[in-house]
Amino acid sequence: MTETPKIRLRGVTKRFGDKLVLDGIDLDVMPRTSMVVIGGSGSGKSVLIKCILGLIEPDSGSIEIDGQDVLRLPPHEREAVRAGIGMLFQNGALFDSISVADNVAFGLLAQKKATRAEARRRADEVLAQVGLAASVGDLSPAELSGGMQKRVALARAIAAAPDILFFDEPTTGLDPIMGAVIDGLIVEQVKRMGSTAIAITHDMASAKRIGDRAAMIHKGRIVWEGPADRLMDSGSAMVDQFTHGRRDGPIQMELRK
């Protein structure tokens, strides 16, 4: 008997005004695997993740998590599904009005999974897992470097030990070494928790480090899917052009003249 995909998308379509951003996306992500979605700017990667999270409502199609179509669930059940998902936003999206520790503990307290003292202990524990000292917890996010903010955002995403993790451009804005450190932490945490992950990225080095499988999205459609270690020799002209950063090929940049 075949295993049910953890996340299954069928015909997911989203349009903003005249612009068709997602054009019938079909995608399966199996349990405990990491799927990397690559694609150019404006190809619909972030919208895809936001649709799965329920931050954007697709116009049509179905999004199944553990076999349940979340688009047809009542709000409180959808909320429960969302509570099992952790998200690392592109710019961290840390709450700047509260401390680092409160950021990390936020989800635990909101989901009533811990008392304030327990949440603080868990925050210190998770900060240590991402290589930050407990004293960092008392700082404000604005006092941290970009790399430290990414670590804190990762700590916040994994604090409640979610089943599913999403990473939106996890290495954007970081130097190559810090990017590799963050990728290493992501792989380590995903494996440790046995989570299913979807990462969207432009960074090929990051894609190969994070992903078990990879998919490429172009003009709102999945144009290739395969093992992440085949990204550089996928056999797809589009993927080859993208991964090798070639100017000429089937993907034409839309430039205004």
Binding site: K50, L53, G54, L55, E79, R82, A83, I85, G86, M87, F89, Q90, N91, A93, L94, F95, D96, S97, F106, G107, A110, Q111, R156
Partner: peptide, 20 residues
Amino acid sequence: AEIGTMRVTDQIDALTTLST
């Protein structure tokens, strides 16, 4: 300004993903 900055830096979406 505070809520607007939270909106454009994804902090409001982050609240939703943290069950709030």
